[in-house]
Design a protein around this nucleic acid. Structure first.
Lengths: 170, 170
DNA sequence: ACCCCATAGTTGAACTCTAAACTAAACCGC
DNA sequence: GCGGTTTAGTTTAGAGTTCAACTATGGGGT
């Protein structure tokens, strides 16, 4: 960051851009907070933990290596490790050693964890539908899909390293 | 939530809806995390604290009542109170009693806080531009604006209470 | 075989956030 | 003015997250 900051002028946000930016922050922030609160209230866990259970439930054997699970949940290894410890205490997830790689661990959804997930899912899906899919037109959903795709590409590591190299040339 | 859950069938997300939803989660999650990390790395504070300083800086007298500040930052009173305490320790914000309402407190940006904000802002704005405004077309920005507006309307309290009343009728 | 580095995952401390209880002042109706 | 209810804000405890340090295993290269 230092390089750009010193060498190039900052292109500040104009009035319209600020509106868009604040609108984005407000909408996504409030929406995610709403979802998190719903999950905490109705199922006693944060949304992030629900996501862990949900991802596991879709895997063959309902289990996944810790690092893959971390990637799929966009979580750091550390965060996931703590989270799985808590979920293990609750009896919803169990750790299993990996035989082919003795450093590895699998996280596996327990039967009870699956039931908890089944109970939590309807309220979650309904909240998502109510505040996202029901408030947008089909066209807007297509647009949203392309917008989020573009943002993700812009954040992808290849993209970042490409830009870093570009800078390094000068 | 209980009512819908018991009385109506859950409309699960179809494949396309799941794609859109996961795309949304991934993009906004990664983007916000990226922004937060940038702020923490380059200026030693979480994004939420930067927002507090930013909002204060735009107010007349660079000060604002705690509860208004909380509203503008989409923060709970409690969270804001903690955050302002930390910012006060850092010497970037100061609390002032309100004379007309003795329960009230103003949070006021200090001169040093303003300088910190000035140093932090360029990197932040450039990161926002790089990963949001530069990756979307003008048309997509218009679409994003309308999408976030719709989401916010769907989350507004009036909307929630209206729905609650609707349910109560039956 | 050995050394070096990368990878997988955990841990502990510091920090942030949440929820609920709490203090104090303002407001409201009588 | 008095009692009861809001409103403003803080505090406490507990839960979640981050960062950096750490253990242990795996994978080259020589």
């Amino acid at each position: 960051m230092g390089y750009d900051e010193v060498m190039t002028e900052v292109r500040w946000l104009d009035a319209r851009e600020q509106m868009i930016w604040r609108g984005f922050l407000g909408a996504t922030g409030s929406f995610m907070e709403h979802l998190d609160r719903q999950m905490q209230r109705d199922s006693g866990m944060p949304l992030a933990y629900f996501e862990i259970l949900a991802v596991l439930s879709e895997m063959p054997g309902r289990s996944l290596r810790m690092s893959e699970l971390a990637t799929m949940c966009r979580s750091s290894r550390s965060r996931l490790s703590h989270a799985v410890s808590r979920l293990e205490e609750a009896g919803w997830v169990r750790r299993r050693a990996c035989e082919s790689d003795k450093r590895g661990q699998f996280a596996e959804l327990t039967e009870e964890g699956f039931k908890v997930l089944e109970r939590a899912a309807p309220g979650h899906v309904m909240t998502v539908r109510e505040h996202l899919f029901d408030v947008l037109t089909a066209q807007q959903l297509d647009q949203l899909d392309e917008i989020t795709a573009a943002i993700k590409i812009g954040l992808s590591p290849q993209c970042d390293s490409a830009k870093a190299e570009l800078r390094a040339e000068f």
